Simulated assay, not measured.
Amino acid sequence: MTQPVEAAPISVPGVAKTDHLGDHGYVRIEGLRKEFDGFVAVDDVSLSIRQGEIFALLGASGCGKSTLLRMLAGFERPTAGTMSIDGQPMDGLPPFQRPTNMMFQSYALFPHMTVEQNVAFGLQQEKLAKAEVARRVEEMLTLVQMSKLAKRKPHQLSGGQQQRVALARSLAKGPKLLLLDEPMGALDKKLRSQMQLELANIIEKQGVTCVMVTHDQEEAMTMAHRIAIMDAGRIRQVGSPDEVYEQPNSRFTAGFIGSVNLLEGKIGEDETDHITIIAPDINGSIYVGHGVSGYEGQEVALALRPEKIRISRDEPAQPHNKIKGTIEDIAYFGSHSVYHVTLPSGKKLLVNAINDRRWASEHFTWNDEAWLSWGENEGVVLSS
């Protein structure tokens, strides 16, 4: 399988580059690689994860994120590379000797055991005193607000309650590293949204370091302190939720997180305080209010988020970055609407607009002409 070619980001003054491997990582992964019969599932991954951090591995199915998680847990042996937790090498250690615990997507609760028995199981395997087991179980059930349901069995619980029990069992032994495999995957959308912040708050209260795997962007953006975007076994970008959204380092990450408009063109003027992009998509030029490390004639794209574009009936007074188009489609989402606007060049742009009136149709409707505009620093310049 060929590896994707990553578009290099245009360097912007004042914007720090992301370092995947810091100097003081609590969890350190260096040069990790995993092959299955010649197929490279994880390709030379290096990461540094801070103590107490909730770190998300985000990517589509088959990108390698679950394989990376399983190697941290000890369920898969790396083909190459090293891992350490709190300075302790994990190389060759079986799962039961690692200071980790994993919460699976299916929760994997024992159906014949009660809630408290499920939470106590791992502690009993450690041969702890009964009094210590009871104390720890009560502490965990109080933490996840399940004390009143301690005598129930899993089939008597809702999906959200089962998730809390699985989390309590995972935290009971006090792991240094908690591993979450698609933690919300078994829940319906409404319950999943409710549980995201609740789960994150419980983990933060315990102060445990957490690595979670998900393909759900909203889940990663809501729960994680930092996100690593994976594709074809590689880390494409690491950063806080706002960093990966507002400052993507490539076309791939710009398109993977949320919705984005990519306006193609070439650098025209190349000055220290601004550049222009000659863009056939808008039959004109785009003004960018800062310099970049590119050069005149370089092929680039401006990544412009739909919510950064303003839509109006009247022509904006600004001299740059405006164009008139026709509304072809409208997607109504209650709080906001997404307008699909076709430009004279044939290029379609997505525009998000808040519905601040009682009826969204009072703004625009199908086939209306509308002016689109955006600020000089609203987009991100990416090389092709």
Rank of each mutant, 00 (worst) to 15 (best):
G31Y: 06
P9A: 09
L32F: 04
P9V: 07
R28Y: 00
H20V: 10
V12P: 01
E30R: 10
A7D: 12
H20P: 00
A7R: 07
Q3M: 08
A7V: 03
L21A: 04
P9H: 11
H24Q: 15
E6W: 02
A7H: 08
R33K: 09
Q3Y: 08
R28Q: 12
R33S: 13
L32K: 04
Y26V: 02
V12A: 05
V27N: 03
I29T: 06
I10T: 02
D19C: 01
R28N: 14
G31W: 08
R28W: 00
R28V: 09
T18K: 07
Q3H: 06
V15I: 15
P4L: 11
V5H: 05
G14P: 04
D19I: 09
G31S: 07
A8N: 07
L21E: 06
V15W: 14
R33T: 15
A16L: 14
V5I: 13
A16Q: 15
G31C: 06
D19E: 15
A7N: 12
T18V: 13
H24P: 00
S11W: 07
E6D: 04
G22V: 05
A8W: 03
K17N: 07
A7L: 08
P4K: 06
V12W: 10
V5D: 13
E30K: 12
V12F: 03
P4V: 12
V27R: 10
H20T: 11
E30A: 09
V15S: 08
Q3V: 08
Q3R: 09
D23N: 15
V5Y: 04
A7W: 02
I10P: 00
D19S: 13
L32R: 04
P13C: 09
E30I: 07
Y26H: 08
G31E: 10
K17Y: 00
L21D: 03
L32G: 01
S11G: 00
G22K: 08
R33M: 13
P13H: 11
V27H: 07
R33D: 08
I29C: 03
L32V: 12
G22T: 15
V27M: 05
E30D: 10
V5S: 05
A7F: 01
T18N: 03
G14L: 14
A7C: 01
G22A: 06
A7T: 14
K17D: 08
D19A: 14
V12T: 13
E30C: 02
P13Y: 14
G14F: 12
H20G: 00
S11P: 00
H20E: 06
V12R: 10
R33I: 12
I29M: 03
I29R: 04
Y26D: 10
S11I: 09
K17S: 11
L21I: 03
D19Y: 03
P13G: 09
V27C: 01
A7G: 11
L32W: 02
K17L: 07
G22H: 12
G22N: 15
A8S: 05
H24G: 09
P9L: 08
V5T: 12
E30Q: 14
L21S: 06
E6Q: 11
V15K: 15
I10E: 07
G31M: 06
E30P: 00
T18Q: 13
H24L: 02
A16Y: 05
V27K: 10
D23M: 02
A7Y: 04
D23R: 14
H24R: 12
V27I: 15
K17P: 00
H24S: 14
G25K: 12
I29V: 11
R33W: 08
H24V: 04
G14C: 14
I10G: 00
K17F: 05
V15C: 01
D23V: 02
I29W: 04
